[in-house]
């Protein structure tokens, strides 16, 4: 069995302590939460941190709640907890849709929301879901907290705006009326990374799209979003024809790359197809008419 190279290990007792440890050990240190992205990479010796800082004891990063008109999800919330969260079901079913298809149930017991977002895999699901929801990431460093929109969080594959001595502490999703959201993923097999996936959030004002968010993953969408399709939909009627057109626009603007999950043309097709399907289901949910 493959095993990690040697490293030092520290167990943080609080966010401030974790930041102090990151500062002390520098850029060759890494936070470990669930470890389900990092530890396999360490076994394959693709990742070789000198120090691991364990943040599993950081209770202040746990919990899902409604705070100041927003759904607040702590960075240490495990995937299984978000999947089972009545608050998520009530307000943002896209998160439940996405969680249901992230890895597998045992991995979801351990893997965390923050870990997934910070790993920033270009095929990661929550990045697309939070992008669709216009969520905000809250990041803490030595100088305090700052807020970054989800669609500015990622700076490239496996790269985020979180600094060497910073921690993602929570994600906030503002709650507004008239919303509906959904996530659609094509995978080769249960538990696989997405061939392509699309999430949509709609805020309807009657039959008009007041606000919309579309998140795409695994298809080379910059910042996981489809702004041209969103612009097309915003302010217009929420109709099947326009969802289909939005899918077409989204597909036009993605830059997928071929791999063993599929060729470029197929992934581009899925970007459109899944955008349309997610919009359709999001609208049905917004109208309370989901089949």
């Amino acid at each position: 069995m493959q095993v990690p190279a040697q490293f030092d290990y520290e167990r943080a007792t609080g966010v401030r302590h974790a930041i102090a440890l990151l500062t002390r050990y520098g850029p060759e240190s890494r936070l470990v939460a669930g470890g389900h992205s990092l530890i396999p990479m360490m076994k394959l010796r693709i990742a070789n941190p000198e120090t691991l800082i364990d943040i599993n004891d950081l209770d202040e990063l746990t919990g899902i709640s409604i705070t100041d008109g927003a759904l607040r999800i702590g960075a240490m919330v495990r995937h299984a907890e978000l999947l089972d969260s009545p608050l998520a079901v009530e307000h943002f079913p896209i998160l439940v849709d996405a969680e249901r298809v992230i890895a597998d149930p045992v991995v979801r017991n351990r893997g965390t929301i923050g870990g997934s977002l910070c790993q920033a895999d270009p095929s990661e699901d929550l990045s697309a879901a939070f992008t669709a929801l216009h969520a905000v990431a809250v990041i803490e460093g030595e100088s305090g907290r700052r807020e970054v929109p989800a669609r500015e969080f990622h700076t490239g594959p496996y790269q985020t705006v979180v600094g060497d001595a910073e921690i993602l502490v929570e994600v906030r999703v503002p709650i507004r009326t008239g919303s509906g959201s959904a996530y659609e993923k094509v995978e080769r097999r249960v538990g696989d990374w997405a061939v392509a996936a699309g999430g949509a959030a709609l805020w309807l004002d009657g039959d008009t799209v007041g606000e919309v968010g579309i998140g795409l993953t695994a298809v080379g969408a910059a910042h996981f979003c489809a702004p041209q399709a969103e612009d097309f939909l915003r302010g217009g009627p929420a109709t099947e024809e326009r969802f289909a057109e939005a899918g077409r626009i989204a597909a036009e603007h993605v830059r997928p790359t071929a791999d063993q999950r599929g060729p470029e043309d197929y992934k581009r097709h899925l970007a459109g197809e899944l955008t349309t399907r997610a919009l359709r289901r999001a609208a049905a949910r917004a109208r309370g008419s989901e089949a």
């Binding site: 061939v195 999950r261 599929g262 197929y266």
Partner: peptide
Amino acid sequence: LTPAHVWRAMRGDPI
């Protein structure tokens, strides 16, 4: 017959 392959095969362009 992965999803990609089925989709391609339907278009007469199998992998």
